[in-house]
């Protein structure tokens, strides 16, 4: 057992962080940031990240990917979260595990989970080259009807209306009017489950990045801001907010890493690895990471006082993203139910 990240994993995370550092997002310290491009995706950032291979982390080298595993993926996605990078990163990386042509990141792929029925809000639709749709199969074919499947849909085929005022201004939304009429079946119910599971894991990793970077920002502010003649971080009332932020981020990261390792062990069929346990671990990671991101965003705003509530301080961008992601790839109640089935 050695649960520490390997040097290679840290190096990969470092490379991603370097690239992200060249493209600061709005809301990150000192940055109004560049205006994002069409559909809320910054083209230059996307290209640089694609060049690093982040969309094909889990795709075999023979198919043009990096040939790595879930533990490496979560390191990449924690970095994306730290930088609050916006774009269909998760969905494109998921699509690449299914269809290696997406590994190079030349296309932008979205994902819509319609198993709860339409209408549904889709992110970044104007930037997408393709959309994976997970839906329940209609009809009466035994063994198939009533189960989920994965479709690849041309965005142009969709009937959707732009949402004029998304809560998170950096992630454009469209409201889907009806289920897509045409699409190519690219996966069955098992594939759909695997996509949603991995999507939950990557989203959890992104949320850990938000939780961790906000801890750092709150701590830095608490050291520098003085009131009553001393740094506010010397007051236990503020110090303990920061300590709780740190604890939430650490615990959530441990959960994400544990889920990544269990899912990787399951993928290669290691002794003692089993899918229900790995799936429950992913759900646990998502629950804790969603909590950590949302609670830390609130706490960061609290530590920043009145300025924390302002647009220009930018902390609201993290909170809005954390809210949105906690509703992506399974809500808290769904993950809790999944865990309870394993008990």
């Amino acid at each position: 057992m050695d649960f520490r990240p390997t040097q290679d994993q840290l190096a990969l995370a470092g490379a991603v962080r370097d690239v992200l550092g060249k493209h600061p997002a709005p809301g990150t310290p000192g940055q109004d940031g560049p205006e994002p491009g069409v559909g809320g995706v910054a083209g230059a950032l996307w290209r640089d990240l694609a060049e690093l291979g982040i969309f094909g982390v889990r795709v075999p080298e023979a198919d043009g990917g990096l040939g790595l595993g879930h533990p490496e993926s979560v390191h990449v996605f924690e970095e994306l979260g730290r930088s609050l990078a916006t774009g269909p990163f998760t969905a494109t990386a998921l699509a690449a595990t299914l269809l290696p042509e997406y590994a190079a990141g030349r296309h932008r792929v979205g994902l819509g989970d319609l198993t709860g029925g339409a209408p549904q809000l889709l992110e970044h639709l104007d930037a997408l080259d393709a959309l994976l749709v997970i839906e329940i199969v209609d009809g009466e074919t035994p063994g198939v009807a009533g189960h989920s499947q994965v479709l690849r849909v041309e965005p142009i085929e969709l009937r959707a209306d732009a949402v004029p005022h998304p809560v998170d201004p950096r992630v454009p939304l469209h409201r889907l009017r009806q289920k897509p009429l045409r699409g190519e079946i690219v996966g069955d119910a098992g594939t759909a489950d695997a996509l949603l599971r991995e999507g939950a894991l990557l989203t959890a990793a992104y949320q850990v990045g938000i939780a961790a970077v906000l801890t750092e920002r709150a701590v830095a502010y608490a050291k520098q801001r003085t009131q009553f003649g001393r740094a506010i971080g010397s007051f236990q009332a503020v110090k303990h907010l920061c300590a709780d932020m740190f604890a939430r981020a650490e615990l959530a990261r441990a959960a994400v890493h544990s889920a990544a390792v269990q899912l990787a062990d399951e993928a290669v069929g290691s002794d003692g690895a089993d899918l229900p346990a790995a799936a429950a671990a992913v759900s646990a990671a998502k629950l804790l990471a969603d909590d950590a991101a949302v609670a830390n965003a609130r706490a960061a705003i609290q530590v920043h006082g009145g300025m924390g509530c302002t647009w220009e301080m930018g902390l609201h961008f993290y909170l809005k993203r954390a809210w949105a992601l906690s509703l992506a790839y399974g809500r808290a109640a769904e993950h809790a139910d999944l865990i309870s089935e394993s008990l």
């Binding site: 615990l251 959530a252 441990a254 959960a255 671990a281 646990a284 993950h335 309870s340």
Partner: peptide
């Protein structure tokens, strides 16, 4: 379920 998640973490 939440406590199970917490103890596993």
């Amino acid at each position: 379920a939440r406590l199970a998640a917490e103890f596993d973490a």
